[in-house]
């Protein structure tokens, strides 16, 4: 078992296909509205209409697939009043169903929307990094299913050494906040100056209205 398992996403080749979402849903049998993994579409650019009916534009878009980042400094664990949210020796953050009272503080403080409230169960649920699979040496369901092989996992220190842990890509929050176990290969368009003016293009897919 890895010392500190982490996700790695090559945003250069993530096409936003969302297979990771469904692989996760299927394995964990998640109902509608419970999204352990989400794919954020970040997009922007301006259109300039010229008098001859033609256009100039600088449109860009990229996708970031994100679940729980099993942060080194998990604010959800700190915020949990019932001590249901906890972290194991490998840094994997999970909810103890016996202790969780469904107050949703963790959901509120997490900058990644990782803890997900299950209405039927009346408590929080979340990504557990497919811990049982990891213990058997198998990859998590989302990683095993990725068609473009953009989503990978590995030892955090190795991934961070290879790809760097900073700076984060827009719209990801500053890594200093929680020290996420999530390493990104930055999309070429994330470096564009005007990318800062972009928006999340699919709010309805990432969060309920």
């Amino acid at each position: 078992m890895l010392k500190r398992p982490a996700f790695y996403l090559d945003t250069q080749i993530c096409t936003g296909c969302k297979t990771c979402i469904i692989a996760c849903k299927d394995k964990h049998d998640l109902p509608a509205g419970v999204r352990w993994r989400r794919v954020v579409e970040f997009t922007g650019g301006d259109w300039d209409c010229l008098p001859d009916g033609t256009f100039n534009q600088n449109v860009f878009a990229y996708y970031i697939s994100v679940s729980c980042n099993h942060c080194q400094d998990p604010v959800c664990v700190k915020a949990c009043p019932s001590k249901a949210m906890h972290q194991d020796d490998h840094g994997i953050v999970t909810v103890d169903p016996e202790k969780c009272v469904g107050c949703r503080y963790c959901e509120w403080v997490c900058p990644y929307s990782a803890p997900q409230f299950d209405k039927k169960l009346g408590r929080m649920t979340k990504c557990d990094f497919c811990r049982e699979d990891l213990q058997q040496g198998a990859p998590p369901a989302c990683v095993a299913g990725c068609p473009t092989r953009a989503l990978q996992f590995g030892e955090y220190d190795q991934l961070a050494a290879e790809y760097g842990s900073d700076p984060p890509m827009i719209p990801m929050p500053p890594t200093a906040l929680t020290k996420p176990s999530f390493v990104l290969e930055t999309h070429r368009d994330a470096q564009l100056e005007h990318a800062r003016k972009g928006t999340i293009g699919n709010p309805e897919e990432v969060k309920d209205a």
Binding site: I22, A23, K27, P147
Partner: peptide
């Protein structure tokens, strides 16, 4: 109760794993 993709062979060389997209996984 569960569906998984092709896991045969060595994914590093051809023929790769034929990983179903979200539609097959659902």
């Amino acid at each position: 109760v569960r569906i998984e993709s092709d896991n045969t062979g060595d994914d590093a060389s051809r023929p790769h794993e034929i990983r179903a997209c979200l539609r097959g996984r659902g």
